[in-house]
C-alpha cells in the first residue's frame, strides 16, 4: 500500500486560491503581518527624512524632494501610508479582540470591512494634508 502521492500532494500555502476559499479573516491576518514588515521601511524613511533635516537645507531638499516626487509618492509614500493606517486600525481591532470582544463572525466581518474602508479614507486624508 505505497502512498504514490507522498510528497507530491499540495500543502497548505499552495492550497490558497486554488482549492481553498479565501476569507478576509485569514487574509487580513496575513496583511497585518505584511504591513508591519513593510512599515519597517516606512520607519527607516522617516528617520532618513529627519536625519536629512538635521544635516541641513541641501540634504533635506534632496530627501524631501525624493519622497514627494511622483516616484516617491507612488512607490514609497502611498504604500507606507496605506500600511500605516491598515496596521493602525487593524491593530486596534486586535486590541479589542484581546479584551475578548467582537470575536463573533458577523462582527469580525463588519470590523474587517470597516478597517479596509478606514485605511483608504485615512490614507487619502493624510495625502491631502501632505499636499
Amino acid at each position: 500500500m505505497a502512498d504514490v502521492n507522498r510528497g507530491k500532494r499540495p500543502l497548505s500555502p499552495f492550497m490558497l486560491g486554488q482549492y481553498y476559499k479565501f476569507q478576509i479573516t485569514s487574509g487580513m491576518s496575513i496583511a497585518h503581518r505584511l504591513s508591519g514588515i513593510f512599515l519597517v521601511f516606512g520607519a527607516i524613511l522617516v528617520v532618513w527624512w529627519f536625519s536629512a533635516a538635521a544635516a541641513g537645507p541641501e540634504a533635506f531638499a534632496r530627501a524631501d524632494g525624493f519622497l514627494t516626487s511622483w516616484f516617491g509618492i507612488i512607490f514609497l509614500l502611498l504604500p507606507s501610508l496605506l500600511a500605516f493606517w491598515y496596521h493602525f486600525l487593524n491593530g486596534i481591532r486586535h486590541l479589542v479582540w484581546d479584551m475578548g470582544k467582537g470575536l463573533d463572525i458577523p462582527t469580525v466581518y463588519k470590523t474587517g470591512y470597516a478597517v479596509m474602508a478606514g485605511t483608504v479614507i485615512l490614507s487619502l486624508l493624510t495625502l491631502i494634508i501632505a499636499f
Binding site: 522617516v46 527624512w49 533635516a53 541641513g56 537645507p57 533635506f60 531638499a61 524631501d64 519622497l67 514627494t68 509614500l77 500605516f84 493602525f88 491593530g91 486596534i92 486586535h94 486590541l95 484581546d98 493624510t126 495625502l127 494634508i129 501632505a130 499636499f131
Partner: peptide, 29 residues
C-alpha cells in the same frame, strides 16, 4: 500590547504635523 496602545495616540499626534511638513521648506520643518 503596551507599545501598541501607546502608538495609537502617538501615531495620530505624529502623522498629522509630519504629513503637513512633508514637501515644505527646511526652515518650516
Amino acid at each position: 500590547r503596551l507599545s501598541s496602545i501607546a502608538l495609537v495616540p502617538l501615531g495620530i499626534m505624529f502623522i498629522i504635523p509630519f504629513a503637513d511638513a512633508l514637501g515644505t521648506s527646511h526652515a518650516e520643518v
